[in-house]
Design a protein around this nucleic acid. Sequence first.
DNA 1: TATTGTTATACTCTATAACTATA
DNA 2: TATAGTTATAGAGTATAACAATA
Lengths: 147, 147
Amino acid sequence: MTDTATAALDKVLHLSSLVSTDLTRFEQESGLTVARVHLLWGLGLAGPGTQQSLAVALGVTPRNITGLVNGLVASGHVTREPHPSDRRATLVTPTKLGHRAIRDLRESHIDLAEQLFDHVPAQRLAAFVKTLDETIAIFARLMEEEA
Amino acid sequence: MTDTATAALDKVLHLSSLVSTDLTRFEQESGLTVARVHLLWGLGLAGPGTQQSLAVALGVTPRNITGLVNGLVASGHVTREPHPSDRRATLVTPTKLGHRAIRDLRESHIDLAEQLFDHVPAQRLAAFVKTLDETIAIFARLMEEEA
DNA sequence: TATTGTTATACTCTATAACTATA
DNA sequence: TATAGTTATAGAGTATAACAATA
């Protein structure tokens, strides 16, 4: 059924738009922006990294990372530390404030997930995740073909 | 299970990020930007409208609409037509090129939905949509509470 | 020679505030 | 007085290209 398929895609996009709006609210409370939150989130996942590694992780240019890191340094969320073995590179490192923001992000994320999905029966939630997994795999294949 | 709930949210965001990347590809092919595509999509749904109505539909300021419409006029996708009864207002109206872009967008959207979901058994897809509906409803309620 | 990050420059999206024309 | 849209101004995110320091 194409209709149901389109409805499913529309609803995924709608939910994603709501999550995005919610992230904007987090932004305003924390004084961060979406792009800077993504960078902090990446630091939270992978630990302190070079700007080069952040550029790859976020899929943007190194120049862009320079600007984002400048903003996060100004707001006190990260510092630029010397790389221990490569004097060209810097290690972008969360400060205490940065770690707190990363922790808050994680807690909000988990809290939101619980509020959204804890009411769903386990079996249906498992099927939901399975469908998402399959869909993501199909998508990844489609994008490879086009690349 | 909090773990499963978090996994579900992560996967929804992942899929949404993939769709967003795909939209970027559409952009590059069509010479449009995401914001302008959203405006065109809105015109496709509701028909020609005033800039005020577009500002409300997209959730941005009227000033922002001025800029987006300027861009779409320059690229030949829309024209500003006089409003039949209110000389203050303009009717943003798709050109032939604009209509073609809207049609292409719709076709890509339906095509993508089919490729992503047509393989899912009808019953599981119905359950998938049901879970999305419930989740969207919960989210809407959460955001009202916080507003 | 290749890589890391920055400076220079430019474009898009977004916002607020003040203003003009019209209702 | 209120509304529709624009001009003025500003800031953030993004990109390419040229450059310095280092590998």
